[in-house]
Design a protein around this nucleic acid. Structure first.
Length: 119
RNA sequence: CGAAGCAGCACAAGCGGUCGCCGGACCCUUCAGGGAUCCGGAGGAAAGUCCGAACAUCGAAGGGCAGGGUGCUCCAUAACGUGGAGUCGCGGCAACGCGAAGGAAAGUGCAACAGAAAGAACACCGCCUCGCCCUAAAGCGGGGUAAGGGUGAAACGGUGCGGUAAGAGCGCACCAGUUCCCCGGGUGACCGGGGAAGCUCGGCAAACCCCACCCGGUGCAAGACCAAAUAGGGGAACACCAGAGGGUGGCCCGCCCGAGUUCCCGGGUAGGUCGCAUAAGGAUCCGGGUAACCGGUUCCUCCAGAUGAAUGACCGCUGCCCGGCCAGGGGUAACCCGGACCGGGUACAGAAUUCGGCUUACGGGCUGCUUCGACCG
RNA sequence: GUCCCCAUCGUCUAGCCCGGUCCAGGACACCGGCCUUUCACGCCGGCAACAGGGGUUCAAAUCCCCUUGGGGACG
């Protein structure tokens, strides 16, 4: 049986990014910023923003793959269904993968606190 | 053995396990969707966007101007600013490398400072001569002179002999160059040989420019089709005295629309589908050509096709590289080689319409050829 | 993705088209001095830049090529 999947349909589209920009709440640490709002579909959907200032194309692809991988394995930390946009900062490119995973974990736990507060 | 040069080739660490992503085929299903199996899934530069094309579209892309590009020759190519083979020049002992390499006796310009003068030389010092003061010297004035000094990045051929008041291609010999002519070789750039003219007229066209050749613009966010919400207009045909006025790719000529009548319902944004992967395609063999490349034969095509954008993460083992440290070996020594262990690293870098090049970034390896030096035979 | 533009003291800029006068000028800022009881103002002086690498040229901030770094337009 397939488990911990992350199909393409659970990636945010353009209009979702605009909605998050207007209505979302944000939490951040020195490496990533998470903008989030309650999900409009049954599942949690993820978007990743890594602009050109972050680095070269292969560096941006690496960061996005790592964040997708972390989301795939740790989406249960979030508590409920959200729409989340993870925005990557330039400093994240130098991190080892394990360090990046732990940074993402702190952000995910902050988001789940908002779920407990009944947002 | 050491140092160096050139050309070509394949690769871009490998294997196993677990969890995942994208596309396709086919099957099952509760037909929105979900699931099983199988197949495929980044590069030599995918990069920079520096050139060239294909393709699409744009006042019908007709003409002219402006503008841009290229610049030794021949060949190759769909085309090129690319490639191949040569020519000439420069650098290197050499192998070899580098060169935007047409024209400066078409024209206009430019050359700071220094210097007398920067291009048909106007004489600063100097040399020679004439005149003036009685002669000489000195001085002043007129003239001749580019051999010497000095300046500069660059100074109007070089050496010798003659010649002269002093000098000067002023004359002669040789050398260097230029222009023209003839002969021979080469498709040609050009090369070799001979002759004539004292012709010596320099540099910069990556200054304007001249000459030769090439280029219409825009670019897949091109463009075609389907098509919510909202707003309201748009299109076609016919007629026509007049053409006000308007639209046009940088400009002009030119071209088109343009007041009336009739008919039709479509245009277009969000969003979606196509364009979108069979192509100047790859491999084998044969033939032609010095080569780039061309012609033919057979075979292979599911062979990446995403769109907030797939090809990844973790674990283990092995390979390679670097550093540390300890055995060991060689050597008088400096030092060199090297096995185990520990730690770290494993390049540059990610397809976005598709090809042909160029440029830049970057890891180690293999093969072949050549040059120079040292030693031995 | 495609197509354009730009780069000069710490900052804003002049010079670039048409090379030499430029070891690059000006303003603000900074530093030192004078003036003032002190500060400010004013005056005098100083520090400080052609993004990097090649090429053309006697000579390059300027002309040409490559690289790097910024910025913009197009749905």
């Amino acid at each position: 049986m397939r488990q911990n999947t992350f199909p393409r349909a659970e990636i945010l589209k353009h209009r979702d990014f605009l909605r998050l920009q207007k209505q979302g709440k944000a939490t951040r640490n020195p490496y990533v910023t998470a903008v989030f709002a309650p999900g409009i579909q049954d599942v949690t959907r993820l978007g990743i923003t890594a602009g050109k200032h972050v680095g070269k194309a292969w560096q941006r692809n690496r960061i996005k793959r790592l964040i997708r991988e972390f989301f795939r394995l740790n989406r249960h930390l979030l508590g409920r269904n959200w729409d989340i946009n993870i925005s990557v900062k330039k400093e994240a490119t130098v991190l080892a993968s394990s360090r990046l995973f732990s940074e993402c974990k702190t952000v995910f736990l902050k988001v789940s606190e908002h779920a407990l507060n009944g947002l």
